[in-house]
């Protein structure tokens, strides 16, 4: 569904993405992992068209994204930090996005109800806590039942109950054969959700494997253990390279 071919992006001398090629398909739940500054957010933003790549191509359903913006109607995006105009109410923000997305008339308001957003819809954005803003971002990402969900640190700042609820929602979407791309530092939150893992470091793709494969290789079952093992396995090589 999403094809990334030899994507390179640098900020000055710093290479955020270095010749990365990847392919994602329907039904996958891909976790993007890697240390800070490894290029995860840049990759997500490239897919969204927020970052313009230097070289390389991104295709969605075979069409390059650089020419047309309509592909974004297929994507629901939940940013890492959600900031909204101070004096708008939650309801106004939701209505605005709905009005922008005139192409879609069927709304998925499971999360709006589940997370209790409809009860505080008249509060203005200025007065919201970081967690509540995060909830609003989640609601907006799922509102139009998109084919692709891109979630940047979806659980950061959410309380455990909401985290569970969000995970359930992601699961149900996955069962509908959607593609989910996410990043998270809290690996346990991704437990049981992830089907594939992409590991980036210094803008380079270290590995892209299914969780099952990784479990086989490392002999571990817990996700954080698996990743820890892989990093140990990878790091000496890197040190050598450096």
């Amino acid at each position: 569904m999403i094809q990334i071919e030899k994507l390179t992006k640098s900020y000055g001398r710093f290479k955020a993405l270095d010749n990365v090629s990847l392919g994602f398909d329907k039904g996958q739940a891909v976790s993007l992992l890697g240390p800070n500054g490894s290029g995860k957010t840049t990759l997500i933003k490239s897919i969204l068209g927020l970052v313009i790549p230097e070289t390389g191509l991104i295709k969605i359903d075979g069409n390059s994204i650089s020419s047309d913006c309509s592909y974004r109607s297929m994507i629901g995006y939940m940013p890492q930090i959600g900031r909204y105009p101070d004096n708008m109410t939650i309801e106004q923000v939701i209505n605005m996005i709905k009005e922008i997305r005139k192409d879609c008339t069927v709304y998925d308001d499971d999360l709006i109800k589940g997370l209790g957003i409809d009860k505080v819809k008249n509060k203005s954005m200025r007065n919201l806590s970081g967690g509540t803003r995060q909830k609003v971002s989640a609601c907006l990402a799922f509102l139009f039942s998109p084919e692709v969900l891109i979630l940047d640190e979806p659980t950061a700042g959410l309380d455990p109950l909401s985290t569970e609820l969000l995970k359930e929602k992601i699961m149900s979407e996955l069962s509908k054969d959607k593609l989910v791309l996410m990043t998270s530092h809290v690996l346990s939150d991704l437990e049981g959700l992830t089907s594939h893992i992409v590991y980036l470091q210094d803008g380079k793709l270290m590995f892209y494997k299914t969780v099952v494969e990784l479990q086989d290789v490392t002999g571990e079952t817990k996700l954080n253990k698996v990743v820890a093992r892989m990093m140990q396995y990878q790091l000496p090589v890197n040190d050598h390279v450096l």
Partner: peptide
Amino acid sequence: FNSIEFIELLLAQPIKR
């Protein structure tokens, strides 16, 4: 500059830059 995140959110929608 304060609206940069909001602009990102809008740009994630199918609208021209």
